[in-house]
């Protein structure tokens, strides 16, 4: 079941084709990483999903309904280029944004109070935005993104500018909302965050999809049969089952030869008299996959 189905979406700006026949699905209830280098077409695609602009062709369904017919409050979007009205007070700013998301004034007031209590900032109601630090403003932006309880939340680089404590606070909220069934699209360059947070990803470049799937499956697909070995004694030598990629006398990376399994290598190591402390498959990081894919442009 998909919360978002994107099929054959095209968006052209003058001579530049920003989104070029894009198709993928975002599973319902997942935290979905939308990845790609700068200029890959992420923002263009997100703007189409959030109805900021329209696609030239193609369809997008949100919970099975064409995106044009959905309600504004079904989506919460925190863009990378984000800001607030500096002269407005926190409370009235959130009230304004909530009402634009089609919440009634009383509903808005209730949810805003709830979130301000939760973030321990209930005394900020009458503070002007310009009095807040950048990190504080970001909390307000986060509240503005999620307060109307959308079924799909899109976060573009949500953690930039946040200290570790606030990063964790937001991260916990993302996980909690996800547990409650909200689908989240998470767009970032920070691959370690993707590995930590996302279950599924799509990687796009030059307006086209390069890769799609569960994080674990993607890693499996791109693994190079490299194992990490930590050992106490013995002298490691290349043999018929593996080649040494790297070795510092206690820790080594071994590449298993094609068609062989880890057990075969282990047996060989034991026969050589190596005292093994740890033997573990090394999956490629998303970062490595990202870089190798973008640089080689292979799928």
């Amino acid at each position: 079941m998909s919360v978002l189905q994107i099929s054959d979406v095209v968006k052209q700006y003058g001579d530049h084709r920003a989104v070029d026949g894009m198709s993928f699905n975002v599973p319902k209830g997942s935290i979905f990483g939308l990845l790609g280098p700068n200029g890959a077409g992420k923002t263009s695609l997100i703007r189409i999903i959030t109805r900021i602009t329209g696609a030239d062709s193609g369809d997008i369904l949100l919970d099975g309904t064409p995106i044009q017919k959905t309600r504004v409050r079904d989506i919460g979007y925190m863009p990378e280029e984000r800001g607030l009205y500096k002269k407005m007070k926190v409370g009235e700013q959130l009230m304004y944004l909530a009402q634009l998301k089609e919440l009634s004034a009383s509903e808005a007031k209730k949810v805003i109070n709830h979130w301000m209590d939760k973030f321990d900032i209930s005394d900020w109601w009458n503070k002007k935005i310009e009095e807040l630090s950048k990190g504080m403003q970001q909390k307000i932006q986060f509240i503005a993104t999620v307060m109307h309880e959308p079924s799909l939340i899109i976060l573009d680089e949500p953690f930039t500018g946040l200290d570790p404590i606030n990063t964790n606070l937001i991260k916990e909220e993302i996980f909690r909302m996800n547990d409650e069934g909200t689908s989240i699209i998470f767009s970032t360059h920070r691959m370690e965050q993707v590995e930590e947070i996302c279950k599924d990803i799509v990687l796009i470049n030059q307006g086209k999809k390069m890769l799609e799937g569960k994080v674990s499956e993607v890693k499996q697909k791109f693994k190079e049969n490299i194992y990490e070995l930590i050992y106490l004694e013995g002298e490691l030598k290349n043999d018929s089952t593996y080649t040494i990629v790297q070795n510092d006398g206690q820790k080594a990376s071994l590449k298993i030869k094609d068609g062989l399994r880890a057990n075969t290598v282990l047996q060989s190591l034991i026969q050589q008299g190596i005292q093994i402390r740890k033997f573990e498959e090394q999956l490629p990081s998303l970062n490595d996959i990202f870089i190798s894919l973008i640089e080689n442009k292979t799928v």
Partner: peptide, 16 residues
């Protein structure tokens, strides 16, 4: 211009 410089416009346009 203020909305554009403040970068709030994208948030706005996702609702209006």
């Amino acid at each position: 211009m203020e909305e554009k410089i403040n970068r709030i416009v994208e948030v706005m346009i996702s609702s209006v």
